[in-house]
Amino acid sequence: MSNDPIHQFHIQKWFPIEIGGVDFSFTNSSFFMAATVAVAAGFLILSTNGRGLVPSRWQSMAEMSYEFVADMLRSSAGTAGMKFFPFVFSLFMFVLIANLLGMFPYFFTVTSHIIVTFALAMAVILTVVIYGFLNHGMGFLKLFVPSGVPVVLLPLVSLIEVISFLSRPISLSVRLFANMLAGHITLKVFAGFVVSLGAMGVVGVGGAILPLAMAVALTALEFLVAFLQAYVFAVLTCMYLNDAIHPGH
């Protein structure tokens, strides 16, 4: 079991709940979702309790994350996009904190499950589609008809646009999910090598240094990936929202 790299992704039912024959148990995944919310909201709310004119370190970090996401959204979707700021900010912080919490040993990584990332991606796409149709009506469909394309090519281009739009939730969710999954498996495999080789005596301990160095390096890389994937998720969300606000590019 100790060497099973998949074990960390198992869902364990902590409080079985069943409604109408469907399993809604409170699981380790649910717990870490709650932990993510508690850590992220706790950080953002407690750090700004002082409302200091001159920010403390924690408040400064909260302000930085706010301005980071605000600048990201404003630069890609304009000022009109700022009405989605709470949504984008929540997505970014939720994914970021979930990824970072997953870096703790024995912690469950919420974003390593495709259903979670897919649900978040669908929330983005549905927001885009619903807002797009509510605000532009059929004009939203101009999204699939790029201007300046010869009429002959239009059906083909539109088809490609539609396919690319439909693949967005899949690419958005799979990118995050696969990165977290692969990273954690790799980390686990290399850490497993260290343990197995270490158990083999003096030679093994010597040989275990290499995978140990790898595990250290991978840990650093995974922290980078944890941030980067949250950033990419938020940036793509901003760009998709921009399509809903300004269709017809």
């Binding site: 992704f9 198992h10 869902i11 469907v22 399993d23 809604f24 649910s30 709650a34 499950h113 259903i115």
Partner: peptide
């Protein structure tokens, strides 16, 4: 585990609540 669809309803519900 990530493709075990029996855990999907629970994850979706709790994600919806928590998010």
């Amino acid at each position: 585990p990530p493709f075990d669809s029996s855990t999907f309803p629970s994850q979706l519900l709790w994600l919806a609540i928590m998010f």
